[in-house]
Design a protein around this nucleic acid. Structure first.
Lengths: 329, 329
DNA sequence: ATGAAAGCGCTAACAA
DNA sequence: TTGTTAGCGCTTTCAT
């Protein structure tokens, strides 16, 4: 591999001048510029970015932490983020925590040694208290999910409203017992949804007993399990607000196998408006999150931050979401 | 940020000794080791991997090129790859070509300057002739899709067999006119499928006219379009072999809206066995590719290669796939 | 407008 | 067993 020294020698100039040409500095004669370009071409030279980064004490790499990339919601988010990053000549590295506290920490550790420019956390397993120390080696921005009560940059959608809209929709359809599904931890954005859920219930004069709260519900298989549990109940809920379209799809699939009519015997609301929501029979009524906008804005903020050398106050962006009605309710 | 020099001073030792401790070299007294660890802890020291990489002339970063990460097949592949990489303390960067020749080249260019240890190409847009020069700066392995006729490392499944199994299945069900769907380019793994398709046809005594070959069919929307085209035909095919479950799902969805009975009026075979294949009504008969095994093996090969400093002959792995019958055929 | 030289943080050959 | 030192490839003062 040719180095800057080789180019300099070949062009009969100093390494400094070559460096100036590479970095588009002023004060280089057109003549010498030409010479440098020629030498670079002849030697098939490409600047070594590792050396550059060492010298400049920065990188152009951003890490994104997600539970798992194969979840459509997260892969869509990463898709958009990567596009924005690439446009700005940043690289994106994917870190899958698999919802594990330890692994999340390991990644943050790794990021520390691997000198990443910034971190975007799409999910968060540990408490902010345990994470905040890592901010000292670069910006940590939150996307979609976020710790509460902190002076940090966050982009997401209004989860309270998501929970509220879905629940009000069901209440307006006359449902009185509505089940609620959430993942294992309910400290972050699930919290907002639950508040919206409770708020709607209260608005319609129901005191919420939380008797129909299914926890640890995440994927299709969990959805099927939930339906089986519902069937076994004596005071069956007539509607269920799930945490994602995948859960909803699992419920619908299992309902079909158990001859439960959707929505007549059980109305189902999903979340995220994934393609599966439209494809299922019946189509899934769901909450549409502006995934692309969320990913785009988060990455833009990160890059702006990095470009401005951190002269930036924390920003909170909450994008609007909406209900999409299909035939599952 | 503390450097190795700070640690050395604090421990009253040389930088060399500290480096030896960090890298677990032999010939360091337990006593001094302890001293070093203490100093490291006190200073909150982490080794700067950029400096390390510059010195060692290597990195621990692997790039994966995919068309778009939001495609479930690719995100699953990347999920597995990242897991294997992380176990081995490698980082994975995602590059989305969006099926664009230019962009693929730009990524390869970028990789050159950004000093990536190796590249895994899950899709390939350009000809091998235009890509092969990049091998000089690191290994390029192919996964799933690959250029033909070359002495390179490739992991994939037997696409010929995939095409053959699906088609034979349809022929055994008595279908005589079978449509075939492919993406824009048919030079890579689609080629194998088409050969298997043709082979099965010939085996059953049909001369294939290619009159029902739909090209440029990639996503759900394309699937819907295909169904509309089929409806409009005079000699309608009675079955269709699609390139992916998403296309199949699009066809089924559109069929439902047009009151076409699946499989009675049109049998549909998908590809990839994504979760949607099971969830759709009817369930989609499909070809199951061992996605996880493919991703795992590819990354393992890459890491072994990098660890062995390139003492490695190219390897061709072709994993078996199988047909999963559901109700769409 | 150009060059000489220092140094980013680390590792490894050589010396002791 | 430990230390000294050169240098990975680059950028950036400071001179000129």
């Amino acid at each position: 591999m040719a180095t800057i020294k080789d180019v300099a020698e070949r062009a009969g100039l100093s390494r400094a001048t070559v460096s100036r040409v590479i970095n588009n500095h002023a004060y280089v004669t057109e003549e010498k510029k030409r010479l440098v370009y020629e030498a670079m071409k002849e030697l098939n030279y490409v600047p070594n970015s590792i050396a550059r980064h060492l010298r400049k004490q920065t990188t152009e790499t951003i890490a994104v932490l997600v539970p798992r990339i194969s979840n459509p919601f997260f892969s869509k988010l990463v898709e958009v983020m990567e596009m924005v990053a690439a446009e700005n000549i940043f690289q994106l590295i994917v870190c899958q925590t698999r919802s594990d506290k330890m692994r999340e920490m390991e990644y943050l550790d790794m990021l520390k040694t691997k000198q990443i420019a910034g971190v975007i956390m799409v999910s968060i397993e540990n408490d902010w208290e345990d994470i905040k120390d890592y901010s000292s080696f670069g910006p940590i921005f939150f996307c979609n999910e976020y710790p509460t009560n902190n002076n940090i940059t966050v982009v997401g959608s209004n989860q309270f409203n998501g929970g509220y809209l879905a629940t009000r929709h069901l209440l307006e359809k006359g449902h009185k017992i509505i089940a609620f599904c959430s993942g294992e931890k309910t400290n972050t954005n699930m919290h907002g949804r639950k508040l919206g859920f409770d708020f709607a219930l209260k608005e319609f004069g129901f005191s919420n007993s939380d008797s129909c709260w299914f926890r640890g519900v995440v994927d299709i298989e969990d959805g099927r399990r939930v339906l089986r549990k519902i069937i076994a109940m004596k005071d069956r809920p007539t509607a269920v607000f799930t945490g994602s379209d995948e859960i909803a799809a699992g419920i619908i699939k299992e309902a079909r196998m158990n001859n439960i009519q959707i929505p007549d015997e059980l109305a189902v609301v999903g979340y995220d408006n994934q393609s599966i929501a439209e494809l299922m029979e019946p189509g899934i009524t769901t909450i549409n999150q502006p995934v692309e906008a969320i990913g785009k804005r988060t990455m833009e903020l990160m890059i702006n931050y990095l470009r401005s050398y951190g002269e930036f106050a924390p920003i909170n962006l909450e994008l609007p979401l909406c209900l999409i009605e299909r035939n599952s309710t």
